[in-house]
Design a protein around this nucleic acid. Structure first.
Lengths: 112, 112
DNA sequence: CATCTGATTCGATGCTTGTCAAGATAGAGA
DNA sequence: TCTCTATCTTGACAAGCATCGAATCAGATG
């Protein structure tokens, strides 16, 4: 909102009001579980930008339903989206949403 | 660690392993509650870089113990630290820890 | 249509968490 | 030392959450 000296993240520039906090907290919360954080990273870094559930399930010692539950949580937060193609369901991240977290937590370094 | 094209956040560059996920997830989790996110932002943006509990409690319709509980959670995550000076206890953020979140979630833009 | 496989939903269970009231602690000042 | 104020701790409770097994759904294929 403001062009200020390269000092503080937006979080430190102006106190978040209750509405803003209620908007952003769920994003942090969704990444606040180790399994979901790994899932998100796995999806984000997967070749082609998307990963099917089978790829993801194999990476954990957890049941299918549990992985499915975490994926649903990530999807509901807006951090990922899913698409069915034939037998498989592919998940990919939504970079705009990730960027919101990045923008909040990073020192604003004005571009040029 | 790597000088890569300005493409992906570290989260998307390489999949986090279980240990890394267990390290970072608690940071996201600590900011994953709207009250704590506002508290953190209030502390970060407070004049002088620190805020006493009395300043913070007044900003919420919550009991003192509840605010104290959230501050303890933030402190245990490493995102803030506290110092007693006389009657009052002052909280301030630890920018290095916030920067870790920023670095994880932001596209690596190599510094010139 | 029957069956197989990938993935989700349902239902249950035990653990974690957000909240408050009441009590405890710590420093300042009379 | 006694009291006042700021803050934390304790104990309790309801709500939320991570997890699993069983059941269900959706395509693909025979």
């Amino acid at each position: 909102m403001s062009n200020q000296e390269p000092c503080c993240s937006p979080l430190a520039a102006t106190p978040l009001d209750a509405v803003e906090a209620a908007t952003f907290a769920p994003l942090f919360k969704a990444l606040g579980d180790p399994v979901r954080l790994r899932l998100f990273s796995l999806i984000a870094s997967h070749q082609g930008g998307e990963a099917c559930v089978c790829d993801l399930t194999d990476a954990f010692d957890l049941s299918g339903p549990t992985i499915s539950h975490h994926l649903k949580t990530l999807k509901q937060s807006g951090l990922v989206e899913a698409e069915r193609r034939g037998t498989w369901i592919y998940y990919r991240i939504r970079p705009e949403i990730l960027a919101q977290i990045g923008a909040l937590t990073t020192v604003a370094r004005p571009v040029s």
